[in-house]
Simulated scan of single mutants.
Amino acid sequence: MFAAYLAADVEGMSSVFKGALVALLPHAFFIQRMGFFHAKRRTRGAMHLFRAEAGKFGLTVALFVAVFVAAPPSNPALFFYAYVAVVLTHWLTPWLMPRDRTTN
């Protein structure tokens, strides 16, 4: 966000913030839907995975439409850079984690 502020001032930060939210909110929905933080609600079935992923995709599409219709970003390039950066961070995290980690 600091680089966006230096490059495009407050409008750039607004675009980065919107792009990050469009990426983070569907991920949070998926995590909540799958119950990763609650051992009692943790689902392991493939059908739950498909439903959570379909909801995540639908929420992503709805957020893109809402952002570009209701509050278009002032700098679309920064919006998409932030979106892609957040999505790639979630994809690359498993590769960056140590291999000798123990899980419960």
Rank of each mutant, 00 (worst) to 15 (best):
K56G: 13
H38L: 07
H38C: 06
K56Q: 15
T60R: 12
A4V: 00
H90P: 00
Q32K: 14
V65G: 06
W95V: 11
F30V: 15
S74G: 14
G45I: 05
L63K: 11
G19M: 01
A28Q: 14
L88R: 01
Y83D: 00
V61I: 15
F79N: 00
M1T: 10
G55Y: 04
T89S: 07
L78R: 02
A3W: 06
L21E: 07
E11C: 05
M34D: 01
P98E: 11
V87M: 04
F50H: 03
L63C: 10
V65Q: 12
N104K: 04
T60D: 09
N75V: 14
F80L: 05
I31P: 00
M13G: 00
F64H: 13
L6M: 15
R101A: 05
L96V: 14
D9W: 01
H38W: 05
Y81T: 02
P73S: 09
F50W: 05
L59D: 13
K40I: 06
P98W: 10
F17G: 08
F37T: 13
A52H: 06
F50G: 04
N75T: 06
G12K: 02
A85K: 03
R101E: 09
F30I: 15
G12W: 02
R51E: 14
K18C: 12
P76H: 08
K18M: 13
A3F: 02
T43Y: 05
L21Q: 09
A70E: 10
T103Y: 06
P26D: 08
V61Q: 13
T43E: 11
T103V: 14
A62I: 05
Q32D: 13
A66H: 10
Y83N: 05
M47Y: 00
R41P: 11
G12I: 01
F68Q: 11
A39T: 14
W95K: 13
A62R: 13
N75A: 07
V10H: 03
F64W: 15
F36V: 15
N104F: 06
A70L: 15
G45Q: 00
V61D: 11
M1V: 01
L78N: 04
M34R: 10
F30H: 03
P98A: 10
A23C: 07
M13L: 09
V86N: 10
Y81H: 05
F68E: 10
H38Q: 10
H38A: 07
R101P: 00
A62F: 09
H90A: 00
T89C: 05
A20S: 04
R101K: 13
K56F: 02
L78T: 02
T43Q: 13
V61E: 07
A85G: 04
A54K: 01
R42L: 12
Y83K: 13
K56C: 12
V69C: 08
A23H: 02
A85Y: 01
K56A: 10
L88F: 04
A46E: 05
